[in-house]
Simulated scan of single mutants.
Amino acid sequence: MNPVGGEAEPELSGVAVNLRRMNTRLVNLVIDAARPRVLADFWAALLGWRVAVEEPDEVDVRAPETDGWDLDLVFVPVPEPKEVKNRIHLDLSSETLAHQAELVSRALELGGSRVDVGQGDVPWVVLADPEGNEFCVLEPRDRYAGTGAVASIVVDAHDPERMAAFWARLTGRSVGARDEGGLVGLSAPAGRGPWLEFLRNDDVKRVKNRVHLDVAPPAGADHMAVVSEVVATGAAPADLGGPDLPWRVLMDPEGNEFCVLTPR
């Protein structure tokens, strides 16, 4: 990847929208799981984090403050088995080639596996966790030197520019990288922590995503007014959660589910 720096906003492929930032932020990366505690233990051990919350409807893994990751990694129970490659995955960072090899070895010892998603001969390693969720262990890259354990949250996208513009509004992030391979990256607001990247992929979305993002407005905000503004930005109702849940489930411009949580 050969990013070109800068803070310019992405164009929206001819779609005219107001790119004013919203006052929402990323708060969770949520992973559906048959065995939430098993997956939480795998990821906590692999990343050097800890299980911070265990309840019947979720298990949360939390990074130390020194890492830079300021979201919770949340595992929720679902009955459906994994059917297709996830449209959202994590890329893990490494400091040296020896460190990369160590991470791969640790993942395999913890119950992960090597997978082939058509990557060919590449310097990164594609693995899956114990329930088949794909992730990559990257070779050392300058762009990810200050991210912490997770280099990036990667989202498959038909139109990376449009998706980056939408999510920049929701997260307060700015475009910090583009490359000729069809990737647009949003850098972390504080300059440390994972990138949010949109990678060109023509695969058609077939089922509900097993990995999704949660955003939340700040304490004191009008939740339904925020939801309405998000919809006006280009989201659509997903009709997955039922009317009695305190959060609202929406879909981004390419149909990826995400939740707008209550103010916090």
Rank of each mutant, 00 (worst) to 15 (best):
residue 1 M to C: 01
residue 1 M to Q: 04
residue 2 N to V: 10
residue 3 P to I: 07
residue 5 G to H: 04
residue 11 E to S: 05
residue 13 S to T: 02
residue 13 S to N: 04
residue 15 V to W: 13
residue 17 V to E: 08
residue 32 D to E: 02
residue 33 A to W: 14
residue 38 V to R: 10
residue 40 A to C: 06
residue 48 G to A: 12
residue 49 W to R: 05
residue 51 V to E: 01
residue 63 A to W: 09
residue 64 P to F: 04
residue 64 P to M: 05
residue 66 T to R: 02
residue 68 G to H: 03
residue 68 G to N: 03
residue 73 L to H: 04
residue 78 V to H: 11
residue 82 K to T: 12
residue 86 N to E: 12
residue 86 N to Y: 13
residue 87 R to D: 10
residue 90 L to S: 02
residue 91 D to M: 06
residue 92 L to I: 10
residue 93 S to V: 07
residue 103 L to Y: 11
residue 104 V to E: 14
residue 108 L to N: 04
residue 108 L to Q: 01
residue 109 E to C: 08
residue 111 G to D: 03
residue 114 R to F: 15
residue 116 D to Y: 03
residue 116 D to R: 02
residue 117 V to W: 00
residue 119 Q to S: 12
residue 119 Q to M: 03
residue 121 D to I: 12
residue 127 L to I: 11
residue 130 P to H: 05
residue 133 N to P: 08
residue 133 N to S: 07
residue 134 E to F: 08
residue 139 E to D: 14
residue 140 P to A: 06
residue 141 R to A: 14
residue 141 R to K: 13
residue 141 R to V: 14
residue 142 D to G: 12
residue 144 Y to G: 13
residue 146 G to R: 10
residue 147 T to M: 13
residue 150 V to N: 02
residue 153 I to Q: 07
residue 159 D to Y: 04
residue 162 R to G: 15
residue 163 M to C: 08
residue 167 W to Y: 07
residue 170 L to T: 01
residue 172 G to P: 07
residue 177 A to Y: 11
residue 177 A to L: 05
residue 179 D to W: 15
residue 181 G to W: 07
residue 186 L to K: 10
residue 187 S to P: 09
residue 188 A to I: 15
residue 199 L to F: 14
residue 200 R to M: 04
residue 203 D to G: 07
residue 204 V to Y: 09
residue 207 V to W: 00
residue 210 R to D: 11
residue 212 H to P: 08
residue 217 P to G: 03
residue 218 P to N: 07
residue 220 G to C: 09
residue 224 M to R: 06
residue 228 S to G: 15
residue 234 G to T: 02
residue 235 A to R: 10
residue 236 A to R: 02
residue 239 D to P: 09
residue 241 G to D: 15
residue 242 G to R: 13
residue 250 L to E: 04
residue 250 L to C: 00
residue 252 D to L: 08
residue 253 P to V: 01
residue 262 T to R: 15
